[in-house]
Design a protein around this nucleic acid. Structure first.
Lengths: 126, 126
DNA sequence: TAATATTACGTATTACGTAAAGATT
DNA sequence: AATCTTTACGTAATACGTAATATTA
């Protein structure tokens, strides 16, 4: 089970069609079909009932649909959370330091900070 | 971002080492390193600070760790839920039918049922 | 020097697209 | 006939392992 497969499955379930889902995902239909087929194979259940050209979700399909939505939402949350941290920890900090022994005193702290936050540029101004 | 990458990342964070994580996952170290590196590249943030041979999670890494745990748990939930449905909908139903016109009457219902639950074997006994 | 991480590179897997066939309305 | 799905197959991307290099305790 991959996130990609869950996305393709969800798009197909939403659209009720492989071709429509593929169009929305800007992919060829067979690619979408294949991934859904692989997902079904791994889970050991049919997710759709193919009756002619009409697709219907099975019970398993409806179940997975709910869970897939949750999973993909959690992935988006993760992205957002990390992006926010990156935002915060990607800038420049300018530090004014006065007094002779000061460099010594701050160097240790600054080094530790730099190690933990490599994305932040630390400028020391004497 | 793939589930695989999240698994490798989580294992590495838990073990505090690429080699230990790789051993646990029964993979070669470079494979694990590479996937984590790709994950960092996609997110645009370092997840670990490489200080010598010691790995430490960055702020972004700690954030992702929490979310990754949630995501992978949600995936397990999905698997379990689908497996339960499969369990229920993979058996044999034997239906005793009496009376002359009965087959006609039930056939429509049975066909609909079969369509919705292809995993269930339906036996009709006259 | 023993243990760990990174880099380099070849191989095997796999995701994708195009093309063709099958099926249904 | 037109639309959709599946099958078949070749190609490109990529995940993996082995080997070599670098780095540190």
């Amino acid at each position: 089970m991959t996130l990609q497969q869950l996305r393709y499955f969800l798009a197909t379930a939403d659209q009720g069609s492989f071709s429509a889902a593929a169009a929305g995902l800007r992919l060829a239909q067979p690619s979408v079909s294949e991934q859904v087929r692989l997902l079904e194979a791994e889970l050991g259940v049919a997710l759709f009932v193919r009756a002619g050209r009409t697709l219907t979700l099975t019970e398993a399909g409806r179940t997975l649909r709910r869970h897939a939505g949750r999973i993909l939402a959690a992935v988006d949350d993760a992205r957002t959370a990390v992006a926010e941290v990156r935002q915060v920890l990607t800038g420049t900090v300018t530090l004014g330091v006065f007094g002779t022994a000061s460099y010594y005193l701050v160097s240790e702290v600054v080094e530790g900070f730099r190690r933990r936050h490599p994305g932040v540029r630390v400028r020391l101004v004497g």
